[in-house]
């Protein structure tokens, strides 16, 4: 297992994709955090002038929509990494498998270690340190962009608040779990382009839409908590969706288990499909 792990670590380390993903995620989250913080500040200022409390949802959410206060603004902005950026670690994880098929290096990989389950397991573990780097880049980008913007407009950054710190820190765990989901997804859908397109479509379009739709009905609202994106946000403990009053989240530990379950189920499916078939 150690040898297989070292091999997989080297495979990721010797390509550029992991730090490119970290770089792009950091820059993207920084930009989004600046825009989001700016929008909240603008909304608060306008509401102040009108003499009424600002509502975060803009009419989209239900009754639970939070009033825009310092805590809501800070948590909403600081959790953008897990709410919007989880596509990056997911792609990182998927690439760990799909590049092997795209460049047909799966052949030498399985020649070096014919125990295919071991190879897949090693990939799962090897992706973690790189996922941590990508996650940190995203979280740091989010917090820096958000805090600097808030500070510039003399709004409280709340970075000293232990609860806020916990929310920020737990995003790293959520994003790392997303990388594991990515490995599982890549092992099920080995076509690299297809895997990235489906991941993008699901995380950026399908799931947000599903969450809004499911939240509209009492019967389905509970189900929306178990969507992978919602589970990821549950780990952080808050998100833009919650502040908007769209849906409640699971407990932190429940969220972690649900996201981990997605990863495990996908990896198992990949094991009995892709990794059982003839190679080449």
């Amino acid at each position: 297992m150690i040898a297989a792990l070292r091999a997989e670590l080297r495979k990721v380390a010797t390509t550029r994709s992991w730090w490119l993903l970290a770089l792009v995620m950091g820059a993207y989250m920084l930009t989004m955090a600046v825009i989001m913080a700016g929008s909240f500040i603008l909304a608060m200022r306008q509401a102040e002038e009108a003499g009424q409390p600002a509502d975060i949802s803009g009419g989209l959410g239900g009754d639970g929509a939070a009033v825009l206060d310092a805590t809501t603004v800070a948590t909403s902005v600081y959790t953008l990494a897990v709410a919007l950026g989880y596509i990056f670690p997911a792609i990182l994880g998927a690439l760990a498998v799909t590049t092997e098929f795209r460049h047909r290096t799966i052949t030498p990989t399985l020649l070096a270690e014919p125990r295919r389950g071991l190879v897949l397991g090693a990939k799962l573990v090897a992706v973690i340190p790189f996922a941590i780097v990508v996650a940190l880049a995203g979280v740091v980008g989010t917090v820096v962009g958000g805090a600097v913007t808030l500070a510039l407009f003399d709004e409280p950054t709340l970075l000293g608040d232990p609860e806020i710190q916990g929310v920020i820190g737990r995003q790293v765990l959520a994003l790392v779990l997303w990388a594991l989901v990515g490995v599982g997804f890549g092992s099920v859908l080995t076509n690299q382009v297809a895997a990235i397109v489906v991941l993008l479509a699901f995380t950026q379009f399908v799931e947000p839409l599903l969450r809004i739709l499911l939240a509209q009905f009492e019967a389905t609202e509970a189900a929306s908590k178990f969507l992978p994106g919602a589970a990821g946000e549950a780990i952080a403990g808050s998100s833009l969706y919650v502040s908007s009053g769209l849906a409640a989240l699971l407990e932190v530990w429940q969220g972690a288990l649900v996201l981990l379950a997605y990863a495990v189920v996908l990896v198992l499916i990949g094991r009995v499909t892709t990794f059982r078939r003839d190679i080449g």
Partner: peptide, 27 residues
């Protein structure tokens, strides 16, 4: 030792890195 196709490489990896990726499992 097998060489099955001359295209089983990640284009972004160096020749040395390609070989070193498999060195641990070969011992």
């Amino acid at each position: 030792g097998a060489a099955l196709e001359a295209s089983s490489f990640h284009p972004g990896r160096t020749a040395r890195d390609h070989l070193r990726a498999y060195a641990p499992q070969l011992g």
